[in-house]
Design a binder for these strands. Structure first.
Lengths: 172, 172
DNA sequence: CGTCCTGTTCAGTATTGACTGAACAAACTT
DNA sequence: AAGTTTGTTCAGTCAATACTGAACAGGACG
């Protein structure tokens, strides 16, 4: 705040921090650094910029970008004069993150109910498994409310009308 | 349901499935297998049983149990006649899981706000970082509501009165 | 056509971390 | 006390995977 250290230091620390967080969440560290850099800088970064400024090989940038694109966190754009690809944050990356978590939670719930259905009617394991499945169901539902909250708070800065994205809490 | 395959097969598949899920969530697979076995069987299992039935070394059981105890998922108990340690599911393991996730989300949010505070007032990165921090804050809050829901649905089968565990949505 | 320029792919390397098994310490049994 | 049983710790091994760098393919431009 009092500018004791230059902003570039703060920036570097932030990028590194996001790298570690991302690694803890099961993604490669470099993907997190890319993500952190795009958040901090805001403006689109070129493929070459990413490799140079993050000091990693072009191969690593390529695979990290692929991961981030798959998860809907980063968008690839083209610039008129330039032959390089440019990258920037996707319109609402956090929603995409949550959708991924939600999808996995639901899938886990489904696997548990699949086990339940394979058990004979009287089994006393059913109650415990039901509780376990219910936990994932409740979690997925709660994530749904956050997704909706993020949708309405950011509104539509993408130009396309989200049309009040419907509370997708089907199934309990 | 029609009992096409024996329950023991279903059990083995379930335990293995939880092992994989747990691995995907960043824990060692064996810890997940222990957790899965305790869920399915319900009754307390001895240290030796775990090693024998899961076909892993005692060292692995020891470290897996340590992890599960740290996270509040499993409780160690003693049986009068037996010198072995026994293990069973903690009273409300899913609440403990969520508390861990919530704690990490809050810690991440704090790290981001820490970065924000280190930036000069006019920086245009602040808005983006604020949004990022807000995402983690909202997530943590939503997890809080699930925790409360699980508290009230299971009520108090531990004997101790939770006394309406207060909505801990302090701070937004 | 040949030559850059740009991004992807892939084999090889390095690092991380799970798992084993043996050594160890503590507590019980005789 | 000697000998068991039980759980933890730790060095070593093994597998998974992140990362590199070189080879490659496809355009753009001369």
């Amino acid at each position: 705040m009092t500018d004791g250290a230059p902003v570039s230091d703060t920036r570097a620390e932030f990028i590194e921090k996001i790298g570690l967080i991302t690694q803890a969440e099961g993604m490669p560290r470099i993907a997190g650094r890319v993500f952190g850099m795009l958040i901090f800088d805001g403006e689109a970064a070129s493929f070459g910029d990413l490799a140079t400024r993050l000091q990693v090989s072009r191969g690593s940038i390529s695979s990290s970008i692929r991961l981030l694109e798959e998860r809907g966190l980063v968008k690839r754009i083209a610039k008129p004069g330039d032959r390089q690809d440019y990258f920037q944050l996707a319109p609402n990356p956090y929603v995409s993150m949550l959708e991924g978590v939600q999808k996995r939670a639901r899938s886990t719930r489904d696997e548990i109910t699949h086990t339940i259905n394979a058990l004979p009617a009287g089994s006393d394991a059913i109650n415990r498994l039901q509780e376990y499945a219910n936990f994932y169901a409740k979690t997925a539902a709660a994530i749904g409310t956050v997704i909706n909250a993020l949708h309405t708070s950011k509104a539509c800065d993408t130009g396309q009308a989200p049309a009040a994205p419907k509370d997708d809490d089907h199934e309990n």
